[in-house]
């Protein structure tokens, strides 16, 4: 199983945000984007163009799984769930995120 520690902050953070969001429960792509925006008090806005490719990549890696389902408004949409592997990945990514932010803030505070 590949557990890559990404230092690429941008793509890494999107993966982390998606994993974290999905930890709350099953939801579709649009909901993921909206939830991230909402949780970050509109500070973070997911670049929608890169969301779906990222979801697909994560599914290929086995971190999330997906199925077609119906929304509350009775619309067909693809729902994503965190898998067990995804759970582990989330923990690892969280750990690595913390490491990075700690490192960054140490540097910033030292100046």
């Amino acid at each position: 199983m590949s557990t890559k520690t990404r230092n690429d902050a941008l793509s890494g953070s999107l993966t982390l945000l998606v994993l974290k969001t999905l930890a709350l429960g099953e939801m579709h792509g649009y909901a993921i984007a909206s939830r991230i925006q909402q949780m970050s008090s509109d500070l973070l806005r997911v670049e929608e163009g890169s969301l779906y490719p990222a979801l697909h990549r994560m599914e290929q890696d086995g971190w999330i799984s997906s199925h077609w389902g119906l929304t509350e408004s009775n619309r067909r949409a693809r729902f994503y769930t965190l898998t067990k592997t995804g759970q582990q990945q989330l923990e690892q990514e969280l750990e690595s995120w913390r490491r990075i932010t700690r490192g960054v803030s140490l540097v910033l505070e030292a100046v």
Binding site: H28, G29, E48, Y52, H56, G62, A77, R78, T85
Partner: peptide, 28 residues
Amino acid sequence: MGFFNRLKTTLFAQDEVRRRAEEEAEFH
């Protein structure tokens, strides 16, 4: 697992992937 999934997608499911992307985009 990722490897085989990707291989499978490459070999068999290109159209499927594309259709899915289209549908999701439409919904979104």
